[in-house]
């Protein structure tokens, strides 16, 4: 698999291929699996993603602690905002839905992780459904997202405990942005700019879950991460170029993660987890968990 997005983009443009084609070709060679077989596996992941969106949108789930649940349904049925009726609101709803399923110990696709699992299904299925695109296009998009994620895994990290939330919802935003740009007809180079534009917006983002639960703020970070991905997609497709190449933005994310204090890496020792309300809620809810 590629360890440089710039190398993948150069190869793709030289050979007149899309990043998804390169990703499937490299995966097939690496793993000794037929491309059709890999596409089937991605198709199964897509089906689980769609089920999670539908399950969470129903609005009747609560996490074990009771801290999260039911908010996706508010975006679906609640009072209108300035973006009602647009794909933007629908994408936010889907991101919350998947994360509410995750927090309730339901079945999701960790893409790239469970804590960031809402972004890819929200952005990709939300935009594909708005445009009436086929599942084949979505499977291509997942392959591209996988290539971008593999590069991030090699050059930086996909773990909140290692790199903070920039390595989870931040990485997911980059993956979703690059994949969606290809799905919507962008060039490989535009995909690279979309990754860079999304990830520059999440640099430094800490992982600070209340009580260590993947609930607050994780559920909402998936919505805001999706919003950053949408911004990056819109800018990249408009022809905006980000001066720092995606690889260097990813390297920067890795460097910031290595320098990030342990309190901001999933330990619940800092950030929102350490606020008076954060500590109180964690204390009350964890106590409840122990009594169950």
């Amino acid at each position: 698999m590629y360890t440089s997005l710039n190398a993948a983009i150069t190869d793709a443009e030289a050979r007149g291929l899309r990043l998804s084609e390169l990703a499937l070709e490299a995966e097939s060679l690496d793993q000794g699996r037929a491309v059709a077989d890999i596409r089937d596996a991605l198709g199964r992941a897509l089906a689980v993603m769609r089920e999670a969106v539908a399950r969470g949108a129903a609005g009747d789930l609560r996490s074990a602690s009771g801290l999260v649940g039911g908010d996706a349904a508010k975006l679906r049925d609640g009072p209108a905002g300035p973006l009602s009726g647009t794909p933007f609101r629908d994408v936010l709803m889907r991101a919350l839905a998947v994360q509410e399923v995750n927090a309730a110990m339901g079945v999701i696709v960790a893409a790239p992780t469970a804590g960031g699992a809402g972004v890819l299904p929200a952005v990709l299925t939300g935009l594909a459904d708005a445009r009436g695109l086929s599942d084949d296009k979505l499977i291509d998009a997942l392959a591209t997202a996988g290539l971008i994620g593999a590069v991030i895994a090699e050059r930086a990290s996909l773990s909140g405990a290692e790199g903070g939330c920039q390595a989870e919802t931040g990485a997911a935003a980059g993956m979703a942005a690059g994949a969606a740009v290809e799905m919507l007809g962008g060039t490989p180079s535009q995909c690279g700019h979309a990754v860079a534009l999304a990830q520059q917006g999440t640099l430094g983002l800490v992982c600070d879950p209340l009580g260590g639960l993947v609930e607050l703020p994780c559920v909402f970070r998936n919505a805001t991460g999706s919003a950053i991905a949408l911004a990056a997609i819109e800018m990249a497709l408009a022809g905006i170029e980000f001066a720092i190449p995606a690889d260097e933005v990813i390297d920067t994310m890795g460097q910031i993660g290595r320098e990030m204090d342990v309190r901001y890496r999933e330990t619940a020792g800092g950030g929102l987890a350490a606020t008076p309300t954060g500590r109180r809620l964690a204390r009350e809810r964890l106590y409840q968990l122990k009594r169950q």
Partner: peptide, 17 residues
């Protein structure tokens, strides 16, 4: 790294790690 490790696993939440 396999793209199926990145787009996956299918799992019970809440945390991949």
């Amino acid at each position: 790294v396999s793209i199926l490790d990145i787009i996956g696993p299918v799992m019970v939440g809440p945390s991949s790690s």
